[in-house]
Amino acid sequence: MGTIGEAVRRRRSGLRAGVAGRILDFALIAIIAAFLILLGTKVVAQGGSFFVQILTFAVANGGIYALIALGYTMVYGIIELINFAHGDVFAFGAFLSGSLLPIFGLREGGAFTPVSAVALLAVFALTMLACAFLNISIERIAYRPLRHAPRLAPLITAVGVSFFLEGALFLWKGPSNVHYPNILPNAGFELFGATIGVKDLLVIGISLILMFALGLFVQRSRLGKAMRATAQDRDAALLMGIDIDRTIAATFFIGAILAGAGGTMYGLYYNTSVFDLGFSAGLVAFTAAVFGGIGNIYGAAIGGMVIGMIRTFWDGYFDSAWTDVMIFTILILVLIFRPTGLLGMRVPEK
């Protein structure tokens, strides 16, 4: 009976639990602070221009991860499913846009004219639509029939779909890195001794615009409100006359639009892609979504930015072989110490 007395003593007041939570938060902050201090010494040692350069990469990288993370968080918010295939939809976006560019007359080394800008816009639009269509089909075929099945079932199909898509990309382009045409001008300007290119500005600009548009959409539009209502309480939303199937499909649609844009920008930025890009990028983006608080779109945007930046800074200043180990360690620590993330909502177990 000793254990019970002990447990009772431990849990007698909510205050204790609060203190324990505080300590864990404090530990987390201490770890982050330690990292920042370590980083700070390196930054000072290596000079300011290198730092500005890395910072630019970091923000661009963070923007791309934020776009992917949004898709994870939206789908999780509405049907509580970790859509494993989402990262592969992103990778599909990168592959598809890479193949579309030459068709639209955008070739590596060609001059970038206003016409090319329009063509690039068309590639963006087509890729985003194709990804959206793909994601909706995935939902329709693999997830919707299992909506009332035990929880494990759709999670396993999600893993299956992810493998299927990776397999399809593997068949399409093979096992090695695929070159992505470098069509953007290499021009840029100097800032504190670092070069900020058109690419950087384009990626940062487009991701900010898309995130802002998504925020407006979710807050203001009818469909956005329906999404928030469905995420909060599916049954109540149903009673209020919201078409659940349509709302869920719309969520997959929008998530994939962002992933498609992210995939295109990834290609334009890094000029390379590989069949299992979606797996690694997806895991990082999912980490970002969890970090920000899964289910919360602002959390995903911030989380994506932060994780993307941590990654780039680590790559820049430390041994990049350990980057992924560090990211996944963050994932596990966040889930253990602060499962609701930075801005997370509390979701009851279903």
Binding site: P145, A149, E166, G167, A168, G174, P175
Partner: peptide, 19 residues
């Protein structure tokens, strides 16, 4: 190269048809 694809298909189909 079909390996991954076949894998994914097996998982999805089994879950849908004979969970």
């Amino acid at each position: 190269r079909l390996k991954f694809l076949v894998f994914g298909l097996i998982l999805v189909i089994v879950m849908l048809v004979r969970p």
